[in-house]
Design a protein around this nucleic acid. Structure first.
Lengths: 215, 215
DNA sequence: CTGCGCTCGGGAATTTTTCCCGGTTTGTCG
DNA sequence: CGACAAACCGGGAAAAATTCCCGAGCGCAG
């Protein structure tokens, strides 16, 4: 019998999983948690084999929950079940000790299958996630790495909301030069629109989103 | 017997709801859809009383699905079940014809109760949503408020990284129309560059920065 | 010294964005 | 029911931005 803990801040989703998994022979849900704190408390008072963790919890993140649970119960097998496919989430989860990573787009059967494989100590990934990991490996050291210092600087000011002419005067450059840099940057980063630029910049810690965008 | 359609792009979540609702006397799930297009097709070949709609679908959004379904079946009662509490989402959903709006944080019992109330023609809101609506009313018309549904939809896809042509095909529009919408949006929001656009969108909960930008 | 890459910017071609237009649909109000 | 406003959709031409291509100066490693 595989004993399972559910960590997800959506009550409805938890209930759905509980019904799904309890109906499966050999699987049993032994606890639910809606936050990292609850998850930490839960692993201390129950013995579980597998934790099914959603990454986007309220307050603290699922990453936090994973670290806390593994610190208290190192034999726990963590399977992330997230709707986020971003490379950042995946690598962070794996570094924190997760064994597998499925997206919520997958079929219920895949989740059940995944839990069994995880419990057996194997790794499990959705096809989309495998794709992300592959690209990450190919990219190597981050796309921002081979920007020149000036280019990097221009990008940094841009994602902080500066206009091209603003950057120019701030850097004592011709607006034309800044525009030319921007063209180069967009090419090097393979970003056909500014939102992708922002995505990349954020991923590399170039800008603190919560502050910059006034969340 | 209340006949229910599920619209959610997560297969696991749909299955969870199906089990939850089918187990309830008087409720019956008669169809599932993972996208706006599927939802549109579904309402034509089934007779349903209530649609349970998640706002964040892949490709087109739940707003799109709501409009399409109501155009084809005006008597359908739409209950939104979203994880987004942003004011923008709520007002747009209501304007598009949704009768109620629950967050995924609520208990399963609340969802079942909500469906019964919606089927009876009543409005249903989570406490958090009521809160949002109240603030919205006090604030007056937030900047995003006087975007039309289509404009809002275009903006939503844009800040999620879609290209203009991508949005066009996804919404079954001419690229030219999308470009025209973008011009209008930038004017209405007084944003001379795309970063300010993202800034506004983030403030109004249109996009979760930490998630979208993979922090 | 010589080559190479970064820095800086001009000018012209190209693309995108804007602005303005008209037609259709939808919904509301007298 | 008719009138009217507002939203929806897209075309075409002008205006603005971006890209492309170019060359010059500079510092530095081979």
């Amino acid at each position: 019998m595989i004993r399972i803990i559910l960590v997800d801040d959506h009550a409805v989703v938890r209930t759905g999983y509980r019904r799904l998994l309890d109906a499966e022979p050999g699987l049993q849900v032994v606890g639910e948690a809606a936050s990292a704190d609850e998850a930490n408390a839960l692993v201390l008072r129950t013995t579980a084999d597998v934790a099914l963790v959603d990454l986007s919890l309220r307050g603290s993140s699922g990453i936090e929950a994973i670290r806390g649970m593994l610190a208290r119960c190192p034999t726990l097998k963590v399977l992330v079940l997230s709707m986020h496919e971003g490379a950042g989430h995946v690598t962070q989860a794996l570094r924190s000790g997760a064994l597998g990573y499925l997206t919520k787009y997958c079929e219920p059967g895949e989740v059940i299958d995944g839990i069994r494989r995880i419990a057996a100590g194997k790794r499990v990934f959705s096809p989309e996630i495998a794709q992300v990991l592959a690209e990450e490996a190919i990219d190597g050291d981050g796309a921002l790495a081979h920007l020149t210092p000036r280019e990097f600087e221009v990008l940094r000011m841009l994602v902080h909301g500066e206009s091209a002419t603003g950057i120019a005067s701030s850097m004592h450059l011709s607006p034309k030069t800044v525009l030319n840099y921007l063209t180069l940057i967009r090419q090097k980063l393979d970003a056909d629109n500014d939102f992708k630029l922002l995505h990349l910049a954020a991923r590399h810690g170039l800008v603190d989103m919560n502050h910059a965008l006034g969340a």
